[in-house]
Amino acid sequence: MLIVHHLQRSQSDRIVWLCEELGLNYELRTYKRSPFLSPPELQALHPTKAAPIIQDGAITLGESGAITEYILTKYGDGRLSIAATAPNYADYLYFLHFANGYFQPALMRYGLVLKAGISDEVLNAKLARRGMQQSLQILEDRLRGNTWLAGEEFTAADVMVVTTLTTMRLFVPYSLQGYEAIMAYLGRVVEREAYRRALEKGDPGLEPVVGGGGGEGLCI
């Protein structure tokens, strides 16, 4: 059986959600932070020492993007992905990798600048803010004319991106005020039954961070 190792309040919520969307039969093992990092028993499973991690028979795999592609290929039966022959295949592929390839690194750079208290006049701070603004604007522009990131069909690209718009804001607060299309998109996300089930199973009691406010870091 597929085993999903999920660190609560982390990007591994993507994998729990993905499994729920696909209706897979899987075993979920949850872990609390210790106090901020993965606990020792989770770290021992993989060289990355971080969630998500899955086990499938003799296979142990880390990295949320790789795990997502593994599950889609082995268990998806074409669901939550776009065929290479479809006109929106490139859009799907771009946003499937957008979170880990561009958006999340930009968020981490922005968070480091905020934590260090670097003035907005410093070049690194300007670049960090610009990266966040560009990330959000790319999503805003895409969602103004599309229900989901790949088009009118919900896909794994949405599963990958939403975590950076929600869970990661627990660690690097930023505002979505002014990004009306993104806010409407998150409203559609929280209406999905599989999303609510994933939260209840993986992070019981955690309210999804889908509001517009963001504390100290305002990216508007």
Rank of each mutant, 00 (worst) to 15 (best):
Q55C: 12
G211C: 10
L18Y: 04
T167S: 00
Y185I: 07
R142I: 11
M108R: 12
V162E: 01
P52M: 07
Y92H: 07
A86Y: 01
T155G: 04
D77S: 13
S10W: 02
L218S: 12
G202F: 05
G76A: 03
Y75I: 04
R144K: 13
Y102W: 11
D158W: 08
D203K: 04
G205S: 07
E193C: 06
L136Q: 09
L165A: 03
E180N: 15
Y70K: 01
C219M: 12
D77H: 14
L80K: 02
A66H: 04
I3A: 00
K32N: 15
V122G: 02
Y75A: 04
L143I: 09
V189K: 02
D120P: 12
T68P: 11
G145F: 00
E153V: 13
A106Q: 06
Y26H: 01
G111T: 10
T163W: 00
I220R: 11
E153Q: 14
Q133M: 15
G117K: 05
A150Q: 01
Q104E: 08
L186E: 06
M1N: 09
I59C: 08
F154A: 05
D91C: 09
M168D: 11
I71T: 08
A156I: 08
A84K: 13
L114T: 01
W148D: 10
M168S: 13
G145N: 12
G76K: 11
L61M: 09
E27M: 03
F98K: 12
E20Q: 05
D141W: 02
S10Y: 06
R142M: 10
L186S: 07
G76Q: 03
V209H: 12
A194V: 02
A86D: 00
S64V: 06
D91T: 11
P204K: 01
V122I: 14
E153F: 06
F98C: 05
L22N: 13
F36W: 14
A83M: 03
R79S: 01
A194Y: 07
R192I: 07
L37M: 14
Y75D: 00
S135Q: 06
E27I: 00
D120T: 14
T85Y: 08
T73E: 11
G78N: 09
